[in-house]
Each structure stands twice: as structure tokens, then as C-alpha cells.
Design a protein around this nucleic acid. Structure first.
Length: 291
DNA sequence: AATCTAACCTGACCGC
DNA sequence: TGCGGTCAGGTTAGAT
């Protein structure tokens, strides 16, 4: 479930195991994921140590002692798990999935502590790349990418500028990583609901107040989801098997036909949550309070 | 240049 | 139990 909050949750989960550790052995069990691994993928990783683990939008970045950076993207179905030095599963970002799925374990990073970090991806929409750290920002993955929504560069002013000449629906504009980076289908739906804006509205028709509301809604929903991701990790550490996480808190996503959370107990009820398809993807919204 | 579509893959789920 | 159809949270190459 990798949009920005999920990737940040994964980053926090992997950091204690990877940071400062040497990659003593790397297994690439096939030549590619969505794309071929870069040349000499294993050789460039083995022997390097991870100086820090960062995130940019939905990408994980492991900075290496070799002045290169390992870029990892989870695609749609990518997940990481950690098996610690005792052989015990210590982290799995799909903790509520039942059963192992070793046939889709494509990459294994063995670190000096004896732990291993396993990348599993049934659909193989994920990918990994290695680029020189000095040119990371200029690499093809990041060169045209918009600002981090939780960073200082993202503001109502930025969003207003980005949307001002766009005729595309706001739903599509927010999915465009060049406008703001890290949102996906779920959090776009949720942010538009919070901002009372219909996904059908054309980008260049939003008013200043709406753009401010949208900016605030994007930040708020991402922050809450990251906090909920943290609680998922704690749940798993406690091995209580509970689902947890943010998905129980969606206002509109996946809730077609269900009541709008804002529908009043007294007075005229809102229409049920509606699902439409925009550029091939589902949008969920309340036709009554999102205009 | 902006915008849209199809494609990449596999698995889960639903109705019959 | 099996079969076919539908859907899935992302990105990008190629067409309009």
C-alpha cells in the first residue's frame, strides 16, 4: 500500500536494521523487477555500507559509503520484511498478510549484523536503481519531481502556481508527481474530501481559499496516516495481529455507497459516497459536500 | 507542450 | 471446486 505515508513507515521500519551496516552479501534473484537492475547491481552494493536511509516522495534512498545511492520504489505490491540475526521475522510492512510468499522474494540484503532485509513484490511494478549521490537530484527519477508535501517548499502559493494553467481535473493534477510528490489515489481522494472539493473540478478553476484548504488537507491527511503507520508497527511488535493503520479511517476511499461521514444526524442527509473513474482510476467522493 | 491511454504483472475476490 | 471477469494503492512510453 505504498503512497508517501506507507513508504515513510517502511523507511522508519528499515532504518534501525540498515543504517550504519555493511551490505555483506546481496542477492538479486532475477535480472529485473519492472526494469532491469542497473549494471553490476550486486557488485556495486556488496561491501558498501549504508550511511543513511532517506525518503523522497514514494522512493526510498539508501546513501552508500561508495558515494552512490540505492534507489528503491515499491510500485504497487512491493514490501519489505526483516529477518533478524536470530532468524526471527522482525518487521513486515504487510504484517496482516497471512503466510510467507517466498516465490516473490526478489532481492535480499544481508547486513553485517547478521540480519537480512527481504524485498518481495508479486506484481514487480517496483524497481531499484543505483545513481551517483552527487547527481541524485538530477537523476531521471527526481529531476522533474515536485516538492515534498510535508516540506517547506510545498505551500498554497506553490500549488496555486502549479494549478493555474492546468485544465485537467484536480484529481489528475494531484496524482501528477510533478505538481506535488508522494500522493497516490487514496490520499488524493481523502484530501479532496477534507477540502470539500470535487475531484471533477478543473484545476484552474480553484479559488485561493480552496487551494489553501487543499494544501492544509494534504498535509493533515499525510501526517495522520504516518502516525497511524507507526501504530501499525507497534501493533506488529506486540504481535497482537490487529490490522491497525490508517485504512480503517478512510472517509471516502473504498466506501462507495456508504454514508458520507459529514451526513448530519438531523436534517437532510448527504448522498452516499460515489465512485467514478477518472483517467482509468477510481475516485471516491461525496456529491453533496464536495463541490 | 499538455494530456490521455495502454501497458507492465500477479493475486484476490465475486458471481455463476 | 473451478472458471471467467473485474479490480488493485504506481509509473512511464507512446500517441494524440
Amino acid at each position: 500500500m505504498p503512497e508517501l505515508p506507507e513508504v515513510e513507515t517502511v523507511r522508519r521500519g528499515l532504518e534501525p536494521t540498515l543504517k550504519g551496516q555493511t551490505l555483506v552479501r546481496v542477492e538479486a534473484r532475477r535480472p529485473d523487477l519492472r526494469f532491469a537492475f542497473p549494471p553490476r547491481f550486486v557488485e556495486r552494493l556488496e561491501g558498501a555500507s549504508v550511511t543513511s536511509l532517506d525518503r523522497r516522495a514514494k522512493y526510498l534512498i539508501a546513501y552508500l559509503s561508495t558515494d552512490e545511492a540505492l534507489i528503491m520504489h515499491l510500485g504497487m505490491s512491493g514490501r519489505f520484511s526483516i529477518v533478524d540475526e536470530r532468524g526471527v521475522l522482525a518487521f513486515d510492512d504487510y504484517a496482516y498478510d497471512t503466510g510467507a510468499d517466498p516465490k516473490h522474494d526478489h532481492v535480499v540484503l544481508h547486513v553485517g549484523s547478521g540480519a537480512k532485509v527481504i524485498y518481495n513484490d508479486p506484481r514487480r511494478f517496483g524497481f531499484m536503481d543505483i545513481v551517483p549521490t552527487a547527481s541524485l537530484e538530477q537523476s531521471k527519477h527526481f529531476v522533474a519531481m515536485g516538492p515534498e508535501p510535508l516540506g517547506n517548499q510545498f505551500s498554497a502559493g506553490h500549488l496555486a502556481q502549479a494549478l493555474s494553467n492546468k485544465k485537467t481535473p484536480i484529481k489528475s493534477a494531484l496524482l501528477d508527481q510533478g505538481n506535488v510528490a508522494g500522493l497516490g489515489n487514496i490520499y488524493v481522494c481523502e484530501a479532496l474530501f477534507r477540502a470539500h472539493i470535487s475531484p471533477l473540478r478543473l484545476s484552474n478553476t480553484l479559488g485561493a481559499k480552496e487551494i489553501i484548504a487543499l494544501t492544509d488537507a494534504i498535509r493533515a491527511v499525510l501526517i495522520e496516516a504516518i502516525e497511524a503507520g507507526g501504530s501499525t508497527l507497534r501493533d506488529f511488535a506486540a504481535a497482537d495481529g490487529s490490522l491497525g493503520g490508517f485504512q480503517e479511517r478512510f472517509d471516502v476511499y473504498g466506501r462507495e455507497g456508504l454514508p458520507c461521514p459529514r451526513s448530519p444526524a438531523i436534517g437532510t442527509p448527504h448522498e452516499p459516497i460515489q465512485r467514478i473513474v477518472q483517467s482509468g482510476r477510481s475516485s471516491f467522493f461525496c456529491p453533496t459536500c464536495q463541490t
